Amino acid sequence: MNKKKIAIVVVVLALVAAAVYAIYDYQREKDQPLTLYGNVDIRTVNLGFRVDGRLASLTVDEGDAVKAGQLLGKLDDAPYLNALQQAKANVASSQAQLDLLQAGYRQEEIAQVRSEMAQRQSAYAYADSYYQRQRGLWASKSTSADALEDARTSRNQALANLQAAKDKLAQYESGNRPQEIDQAKANLAQAQASLAQAELNLQDTTLISPSEGTVLTRAVEPGTMVSASSTIFTLSLTRPVWIRAYINEINLQHAVPGSKVEIFTDGRPDQPYHGTVGFVSPTAEFTPKSVETPDLRTDLVYRLRIIVTDADDHLRQGMPVTLRFAQP
């Protein structure tokens, strides 16, 4: 009987010990920081010229580090220089035409037209006087019908010439029509727009780095005829560096934008990088195969973007990392 009691006590103690261990293990797991797995996600940019031409030179090669604003390459700019000179000449010609129309006619030109009108006035007076004489002669049957008709025709022609001279003098004295000046202004604006485009095309014969980064690929070599937007370099942007990770719905409350995260790599297991949650996808998706935890592969998860605040050159595109959220 004593042995039976002892056995019961042992069993009870074992159950109590198991329960205590289970509670301890649950509490320990609960107190562990949330751990996720992800990959370094560095953006890349395809760089090219906005205009066509023959590639004259490249200044960097694959693997070179470049800075924002650094010259990467140049096209042969001779055709664009010629186009720029032509555009400048067109602007100068259009400006001169507008100035001429706005200035009106010179006094010497007006005086010449006035003198021409006076001559045609005299010619009309003579033609009209001759016609009147012919009419008188015709009344006394002293001239022929043909002579009278010739005199009438000459008088009418002289009158038409006089009216044309008067109209021309009125035009010279009043200046050019507003419609002609407006048309000249429009021609000048068009020429100026063409000049601006020519200047932009010449500027686009140089390829400038938009940001700090590293050259991943160099697609062509000097001497190649390239078309607009053809890829010349592929540039990996150095900053910012992001981590792409995924979190399940149970732990989604921990992924608040601005939350602090420690980032561990295999090469630096004891020296974490630091980052903050910058973006949380509003829609769920199936876990991508790139995530290293097999138990999450078929779960619905939410994509996170972690912005690394102290990134260096050791973080490379696609590198796997481990993320640990700070304890709440």
Score class of each variant (00 low, 15 high):
K3Q: 07
K5E: 07
K5F: 05
I8Y: 07
V11D: 02
V11T: 08
Y26M: 08
R28T: 01
E29F: 01
D31N: 05
D31K: 11
D41Y: 12
I42H: 08
V45E: 14
F49M: 06
G53Q: 02
G53S: 00
A56N: 07
A56F: 03
D64R: 13
A65Y: 01
A65D: 05
L71Q: 01
L71W: 02
L72E: 04
L72G: 06
G73F: 03
Y80Q: 10
L84S: 02
S93L: 15
S93Y: 14
A96L: 15
Q97W: 01
L101H: 13
I110A: 15
S115R: 14
M117A: 15
A123N: 15
A123F: 13
S129R: 14
S129Q: 11
Q134S: 08
Q134P: 10
L137C: 10
D146K: 03
L148R: 06
L148M: 02
R155K: 14
A160T: 15
A160V: 11
Q163R: 14
A164G: 11
K166N: 12
D167G: 13
D167C: 06
D167H: 12
Q171I: 09
Y172E: 11
S174Q: 15
G175A: 04
G175E: 09
I181G: 08
Q183E: 11
K185M: 12
A189C: 03
A191D: 00
S194C: 05
D204A: 05
P210T: 08
P210W: 02
P210I: 01
E212V: 05
T214S: 11
L216F: 06
R218T: 00
V220N: 07
V220Y: 13
E221I: 10
V226L: 15
V226Q: 14
T234H: 10
L237C: 03
R239A: 12
I243F: 03
R244E: 07
I247Y: 04
E249H: 15
E249S: 15
H254F: 08
S259A: 15
S259N: 05
T265S: 13
D266W: 00
G267E: 10
R268G: 01
Y273S: 06
T283P: 06
K289Y: 10
S290Y: 09
S290M: 04
T293D: 15
L296Y: 10
L300G: 05
L304N: 09
I307L: 11
I307Y: 08
D310L: 05
D310A: 00
D310V: 01
D313C: 03
D313N: 06
R316T: 11
G318I: 04
L323P: 00
A326H: 06
